[in-house]
Design a protein around this nucleic acid. Sequence first.
DNA 1: TTGTATGCGTTATCAT
DNA 2: ATGATAACGCATACAA
Lengths: 343, 343
Amino acid sequence: MSSTMRDVARLAGVSVKTVSNVVNHFPHVSPTTRTKVLTAIDQLGYQMNHAARSLSLGRTGMLALAVPELRLPYFSELSDEVIAAAQDRGYTVLIEQTGGVRERELEVLASERRRMTDGLIFSPVALRAGDAPLLEVSFPMVLLGERSLHSRVPHVAMANVAGARAATEHLLATGRRRIALIGSFDAEGVGAGSLRTQGFLDALAAAGLEHDPARTGSGVEWNRATGAAAMRQVLSRGVEIDAVLALNDVLALGAMRELFEHGLSVPQDVAVVGFDDIEESRFSRPSLTTVEPGRPQIARTAVEMLVERLTAGESAAQGPGQEVVAEFRLEVRESTALPTPAR
Amino acid sequence: MSSTMRDVARLAGVSVKTVSNVVNHFPHVSPTTRTKVLTAIDQLGYQMNHAARSLSLGRTGMLALAVPELRLPYFSELSDEVIAAAQDRGYTVLIEQTGGVRERELEVLASERRRMTDGLIFSPVALRAGDAPLLEVSFPMVLLGERSLHSRVPHVAMANVAGARAATEHLLATGRRRIALIGSFDAEGVGAGSLRTQGFLDALAAAGLEHDPARTGSGVEWNRATGAAAMRQVLSRGVEIDAVLALNDVLALGAMRELFEHGLSVPQDVAVVGFDDIEESRFSRPSLTTVEPGRPQIARTAVEMLVERLTAGESAAQGPGQEVVAEFRLEVRESTALPTPAR
DNA sequence: TTGTATGCGTTATCAT
DNA sequence: ATGATAACGCATACAA
């Protein structure tokens, strides 16, 4: 069915090498032979065998991207951006889902799919501090996340602490004092959850306030359902609140939904802030104030760093563990609007 | 760096073929040699070279999934389900984005990535009726969409007409008569847009009603922003409406947002129905009545049909163009609740 | 500028 | 049950 270079060579009356030269845009080929080859290619409908090329070249032209769940808006939007950035560099992206489960995150590092890709962009969320040694892998990898977990692995971080702090300060600036914290994290974890919580507590402390644990709604999985459940948990305790800081946007959206069920209005009764700036947050009712963590920059930078390692050859095989922290921006929207003074 | 089967064979004192037998779980290997080989593999940290295996086998173990945009919730949720179904069958999924642009949809069929995958699950949205011949490709493919476009290509369809009709009938049953249609489609297209619109018009006709074109809000791209814009368009015309049928959920969510901006309440003033049943629709405010098109079944069936073609060998290479239509279900939620009688 | 020969790592065919 | 050896299709020294 499918033809090979040999077939093309035969038809064009040249050698296989010449066909290869034409296909790979080798500069030194006479125009006449080039057209001869190209017409033969066209005539046979020849397409390169990727497996053979990979075997010979020792590289596949594919990058892996490991994320918790593709259906979480943050990660689907990130994936979109990574795919686009990789495409610009001539790479194809293979997405793997870890489910946010530690075991599966570790599996990703040893997966059979590692042999199908030239490098990995890895966004772990369930790894513990003790897992750091396991990240000392032999293949090119770029981590998405903060340094805490890993030492020598290059990574692209978001300003989790500073972003959450800015978000909290914004709530404080609008006069809110009884802020609920929605979403929790593995106590042994070192992911975004603990860092954002840190930023939250920092802002409170700086304002001379303390966080009442009764205002924390737990939920390790970060989706709308757990956001709603966590909010319900806090409300059921009968503790007063005038604001909510959710550890990410979907948690915030779930929490808003729950506030609504309880007859509380946002932002009049309760102000709400999220983290991630997913597209949905611009269209929710009310629209959600959130931290834009610089996701496009993160995607682009991660791909660039990885491709650089790939093309650098043996030279910079073990760099100094480069770190880039993306710039964040607080997107103020309706969910934290000041209560109308004339009331 | 990475070791080969030869290295393993040498260390274990056996032949390459034996190592291959062990790795591929070939039944006839003596327990002693198996353990010898396995320890050698373990000791060397051997991992199979996927490119070499693909070259030899003539198959890659990868399936391609081409969707418009990964960041559209419907497609990210679909992708998740396709990946899971493929994994169960031992396949890896490569996602391609077409942007919903006809040219890029056609490119997918000739893409270099076709040579990296064993088959394609293709969800076209911008192809025209005249493009049907271009879908007569030589590689295994399963289409997501209705038959209109393609004759001999196997495909998995959703009940676009019936679903939209049921949704519209639901609106009519709750006493709504002035229904706006949000979202439009390429007039030459044969995709979900025209079919859902057909179902909408069918239901109206069956009820002896006619659709006022002034109640159609156009928007070829289906996202929140266009949903809001289309709604704005209708409202600006000053035509009365008491309900909205949006061609999908994100359009509906954008439209609801716009209704809110105009001081209209859902469902009291205007009832709203979407199509797709994305997770967000269960948590929006109000929660969105929508058509659940059987997406999980679609994902599973598409993978099964494709894998079947792949493993059937030459035998059923050209089947009769199998068609499966998934079962839909109308999810009634708050956005179409009956106005409280006591008003 | 173009052709020849060899290797990439695995599977498959045939022996034994 | 296991081993030797030839494909698989392409890239690349090296030669011409």
